[in-house]
């Protein structure tokens, strides 16, 4: 298992104000799996993603990434883990406004200590992979929402992470841009990239080979999808 959680819990408040955002969740994600976590707003799916990525500390339970327990790691070790083994994609992209698409992508590699030249080559390769090589020198303000999200995905892939964690990656996108991102996820999945995607969008579930439904911080349903990633659910390829 590349990602494993046992009794994972995150609570806020106390007494009558106690909220169980994530309530004793057990999860195993094998390498290469595309996992979609779905559920209504406030069910705890984003919190679960943050716990799995070490952005938040659980109040209970354990998380392992590639057999390394991460919930007890120091901030420094968590940062190193995120740098080397995890890639994040957010609903609102979180690109640096003053950096070009290329510079945004290479930032992850630079923070990981890669030489500037190699970071630039890697960024260019990834922008080609997400179909934005011709937009490498553009600032985020000159890109469409879908293009921005593809840049964010390229950035998440920059350090060849074990797992890509995506939080509502199509939440801010129109239909056309959503299809672009879905195609990209499908390609990643086909290439063997482990994906954990939190989403409202049922179309994303179509590219996943496993879908978990959450309610009130717990898993309500966990099902394998047969024949996923065929590309038939979300329309024709251009």
């Amino acid at each position: 298992m590349v990602l494993r959680a046992r009794g994972l819990t995150r609570r806020y408040g106390r007494d009558s104000g106690l909220v169980r955002a994530v309530d004793e969740v057990d999860l195993d994600v094998p390498a290469g799996q595309a996992l979609a976590i779905m559920g209504p707003s406030g069910c705890g799916k984003s919190t679960l993603l943050h716990l799995l990525g070490g952005l938040q500390r659980p109040t209970g339970g354990q998380v392992w990434l590639a057999d390394r327990r991460i919930d007890t790691m120091s901030e420094w070790a968590s940062a190193r883990l995120r740098r080397d083994s995890l890639g994040f994609v957010f609903q609102s992209f979180h690109l640096m406004d003053e950096l070009t698409a290329m510079e945004n992508v290479e930032l992850a590699a630079l923070l990981a200590g890669q030489p500037p030249r190699r970071a630039r080559q890697r960024a260019l390769h990834l922008l080609e992979r997400v179909g934005l090589a011709d937009r490498a020198a553009h600032l985020p303000s000159a890109l469409s929402g879908g293009q921005r999200q593809r840049v964010a995905i390229a950035r998440a892939l920059c350090n060849e992470p074990l797992v890509v964690l995506a939080d509502e990656p199509t939440g801010n996108l129109d239909s056309a841009a959503t299809l672009d991102v879905l195609r990209l996820f499908e390609e990643l999945h086909t290439a063997g990239q482990t994906l954990v995607v939190v989403t409202h969008d049922p179309r994303i579930a179509a590219v996943a080979d496993r879908v978990i439904s959450m309610r009130d911080g717990a898993f309500a349903d966990d099902r394998q999808v047969v024949g996923a990633a065929t590309g038939t659910v979300y329309g024709r390829r251009r």
């Binding site: 420094w76 940062a79 995120r82 080397d84 979180h94 690109l95 640096m96 923070l111 990981a112 350090n159």
Partner: peptide, 16 residues
């Protein structure tokens, strides 16, 4: 705050 938070998701430590 925001660029630093992004940098931290990309692996920058709180110290850095």
């Amino acid at each position: 705050r925001q660029p630093l938070a992004v940098a931290r998701t990309l692996g920058a430590t709180p110290g850095q």
